[in-house]
Amino acid sequence: MPIPNNTDHSPGSLRRSYKRYLKERVIELLLFLAAFLSVFITFAIIYLLISESLVFFEHVSVWDFLTDTQWTPLFDDAHYGILPLVSGTAISSLVALVIALPFGTIIAIYLSEFAPFTVREIAKPFLELLGGIPTVVYGYFALLFVTPLLQTILPDLPGFSLLSAGLVMGIMIIPYVSSMTEDAMRSVPMHLREGSYAIGATRFQTAIKVVMPASLSGIAAAYILGISRAVGETMVVAIAAGMQPNLVWNPMEPAATITTYIVQVSLGDLPHGSVGYQTIFAAGLTLLLLTLVFNILGHLLRKRYREVY
């Protein structure tokens, strides 16, 4: 069969179908917009918090906001010091972390290095279920079960306290910390463990001296993301810690956190555009900045251990 020996290799019938190409691009654009929505949400959050806060800072100086030791925006003698809210947040988070980090770590070590297969297969979903219980239910548990229980040991404990809110918050965060810590530990390759066992190390020695150091950045990430969870937690403290902004360092007292203040204002009926309305955005901005620092740090650390293995 004679083949025309010309050098014109034009695409002919193989040419790109314009209609099909266009349809594919339109679909791609729609999908991109959906993905880009997340960036838009972030910008919307930042824009909203900053713009409302700017109005707030026209009334209140940044210096007062950061140094005043009273937070009484709804009183006639209004003070706008964020410190009482920060202290409440810090204390309740601290109590939570004292519970969540050790317990979370011990459970993670057990599940990753000691537990038989069946125990792990049952315990992991169970912990996941615990983590899925609504926070308002944990709040109920803190106020109506843990506080009365603690009062039998500590008769001076008031009905609302940072202690019981923090304790329950800690219990709530355990599954979160343990599952991330365990993920980090299990990502340590088996041959590292085998190397340790081969020279006569026990399970515990292997866990402490080989697995944990090897997954350190992952464990640190779990801790930091746990802190961020505690700082941003709202309902448990709103229900069990009371809502008075007190500059306290004693967990046995009631106090407000940044989050509970926002809840408190939202429960009332503040007119849109008033200084009171803007305070919750200033408080929200503070909270966002705090959690953002922890989140970014946590994700950087997580990324690092994922890159290693």
């Binding site: 083949i3 290799h9 034009s10 695409p11 002919g12 019938s13 040419r15």
Partner: peptide
């Protein structure tokens, strides 16, 4: 370079060619 497909005598590697058609 080229991969010529007959009987079209078209270069299937050309950017104008739709890989789907190929």
């Amino acid at each position: 370079g080229e991969i010529i497909l007959h009987p079209d005598n078209a270069n299937i590697l050309s950017p104008e060619v739709d890989p789907i058609e190929v």
